[in-house]
Amino acid sequence: MNRWKLSFFALAGLIVAAVAYLIFLIGSPASSEPLPDAKVLDGSDYVLEVEATKEDFEGIANTYIKKAMKGEPLPVKMEVGKDVTLFSEMTVFSYTLPVIMHFDPIVREDGNLILKQSSMEVGQLNIPPSTVLKILRDSVKLPPWMIVRPKEEELFIDLSKIAISDDLQVRAKTFNLEENEIILEIIIPKE
């Protein structure tokens, strides 16, 4: 066998190995970081309830995502309608694919939100949701209060870490999209 054939088969083997490794990385099980412990109010702080519409919450969420990115391009855009929808983009082999993820919101007892993935679209590709969330977590810089949990197919929104001001904290009380009822609580500490 001459050296050109040998070089060709070595290069072809290297390409096949690289593609197989990429498929292995994408398809490997995703690990998720644990959720922070639930913080329950002790009743000594002042609580101000604010009722918001879907449009209000959408605007507030996108404003704080933009603020957390500090001038960098926005990795995701949130829309609130029948469900919570996140729009993003994913680049695969120099092709940019639109990523649309639909979530059902769940309010935890500590007032933080869990967005449980209900469906997703990645261009025309059929990719498991946990894989898309893993790729999103690894390739898109999200604000520190958005925790992607691919194994559980959910996104955790830690409202307590959103910097409203030095003293104030926000938590969700009700998040009913069907009734367009979103009630947020603003916690003002007693001094």
Rank of each mutant, 00 (worst) to 15 (best):
M1S: 13
N2R: 13
K5S: 11
L6N: 07
F8G: 15
F8P: 12
F8Q: 13
F8M: 13
A10H: 07
L11F: 08
A12C: 13
G13S: 14
L14H: 10
I15M: 11
V16E: 11
V16C: 15
A18V: 09
V19G: 14
V19M: 10
A20P: 04
L22F: 11
L22G: 15
L22A: 14
I23K: 10
I23H: 08
I26V: 15
I26Y: 03
P29M: 06
S31A: 14
E33P: 12
L35D: 06
D37M: 13
D37W: 11
A38T: 07
V40N: 10
L41H: 12
D42W: 05
G43W: 08
Y46R: 15
V47H: 05
L48D: 13
T53H: 04
K54H: 07
D56A: 06
E58Y: 02
T63S: 13
M69W: 03
G71E: 09
G71Y: 08
E72P: 09
P75T: 00
P75F: 00
E79G: 05
V80H: 01
G81M: 02
T85V: 06
L86A: 03
L86T: 01
F87K: 07
F87M: 05
F87L: 09
E89C: 09
M90G: 01
M90I: 12
M90V: 10
V92H: 05
F93G: 11
S94N: 15
T96N: 09
P98K: 01
P98I: 00
V99A: 05
M101F: 00
H102S: 07
D104G: 08
D104R: 11
I106V: 15
R108G: 02
R108S: 04
E109N: 15
D110S: 03
N112T: 11
N112H: 06
N112M: 05
K116E: 03
Q117A: 08
M120F: 00
G123I: 00
L125A: 05
I127L: 03
P129Q: 07
S130N: 13
S130L: 05
V132P: 01
L133M: 06
I135V: 15
D138F: 02
V140I: 10
W145I: 02
M146V: 13
M146Q: 05
M146P: 04
R149P: 02
R149V: 02
K151E: 15
K151W: 04
E154T: 07
E154V: 05
F156K: 11
F156R: 12
F156M: 07
D158K: 11
L159N: 08
K161G: 02
I162C: 03
I164T: 04
S165D: 10
S165A: 10
S165E: 10
D167E: 14
D167Y: 12
D167Q: 12
L168G: 09
Q169Y: 09
Q169D: 11
V170K: 06
F175H: 08
F175Q: 07
N176Y: 02
E179M: 12
E179F: 08
N180K: 02
E181L: 15
L184A: 12
L184M: 13
E185C: 06
P189W: 03
P189C: 01
E191K: 14
